[in-house]
Simulated scan of single mutants.
Amino acid sequence: MNIWKWLFIILLLVNVGIGIWLFTILDGSYEAPSSENDNYVSSESGIEITMNNDAVESVLNESINDDSLSISVDETGIMLDAVQEAYGFTIDTSIELDPVSTGDEVVFEISNINISDLPLTQDMLYSLIRTQADLPEGIRFSDAERALIVDSAVLTEQLEWDVKVDSIDYENDEWYFSITR
């Protein structure tokens, strides 16, 4: 009878150890991205282009080339949706984005993350996504801030011109770009 008591205590300690390990791995503290470069104004002369939300959404989704990842843009917000299969389960992930700076890189603050309704903090969910995500080239998660960074080279490849994002006003259905040869 005494052996079962010791086995139970050892199993309990192993479970507590795993819980502490998971908490330390997922518990990251991330700051909001700096908005010091918000509404970047290009100093280069070039062609100024205005696109609407639908056109930007189409260009971004075509450049991603991944059926499990999609971006939707409308007047209510910018949403990144991903569907992954793991161990026979479908994991739906949605991330609400808000642009905070533009220029060579567009920085989107991540305002809300939902991974299959997991009851974790936003920082824990961000840590989980950042470490597990396999994003296409030109799109990455920041290591220091809760932000998704999109290199304007993604747009450059689609249009075959040098593209800079000057300003984003998705709420009024307007995105402003500078294009140079």
Rank of each mutant, 00 (worst) to 15 (best):
S58W: 11
S58K: 08
T76F: 06
S63I: 11
F108H: 02
N65Y: 11
M51K: 08
E85G: 01
E44N: 10
F89G: 04
G77L: 00
D67N: 05
D92F: 05
F108D: 02
I78E: 10
E96K: 14
G88T: 00
I71K: 01
V100G: 05
S72Y: 05
D81G: 04
S70T: 13
D66V: 02
L60K: 05
E96V: 10
L69F: 11
A82N: 01
L60W: 06
I91T: 02
T93Y: 09
E57P: 15
Y87A: 12
S111Y: 10
S116G: 02
E75C: 02
E109N: 15
E48L: 07
P99R: 02
N114K: 07
L80E: 07
N65E: 13
V83N: 11
I71M: 11
M79G: 06
E109L: 11
S101D: 05
I113G: 01
S94G: 14
I91H: 01
I49L: 09
M51P: 11
D66S: 10
P99T: 01
D54F: 03
T90V: 03
E109M: 11
S70R: 04
F89W: 10
M51D: 07
E57Y: 09
V73R: 07
Q84N: 14
N112T: 14
D92L: 09
F108M: 08
G88Y: 07
N61T: 15
T102Y: 07
E105G: 06
T93P: 05
S101E: 06
S45L: 07
S111T: 14
E62R: 06
G77M: 03
A55Q: 13
D54P: 11
L97P: 08
L69S: 03
S70C: 00
E96A: 14
F108A: 09
E62K: 03
G46P: 06
E105S: 10
D92K: 03
S94Q: 07
N53E: 00
N53W: 05
M79Y: 13
E57I: 12
A55D: 13
N53D: 04
S58D: 13
S111G: 02
I91K: 00
G103A: 05
S72A: 04
I71Y: 05
L80C: 08
S45P: 02
I47P: 10
S68A: 07
E48R: 11
F108I: 08
L80P: 06
D98Y: 15
G77S: 07
L97G: 02
V59C: 03
T102K: 08
D67A: 13
A86R: 10
V100Y: 12
D74E: 00
L80Q: 05
V73K: 05
E96M: 14
F108W: 12
Y87M: 09
S94D: 14
V100M: 07
D92Q: 12
T90E: 15
E75G: 03
I95N: 06
V73T: 08
V106F: 04
A86G: 04
L97E: 09
V83K: 04
D66R: 05
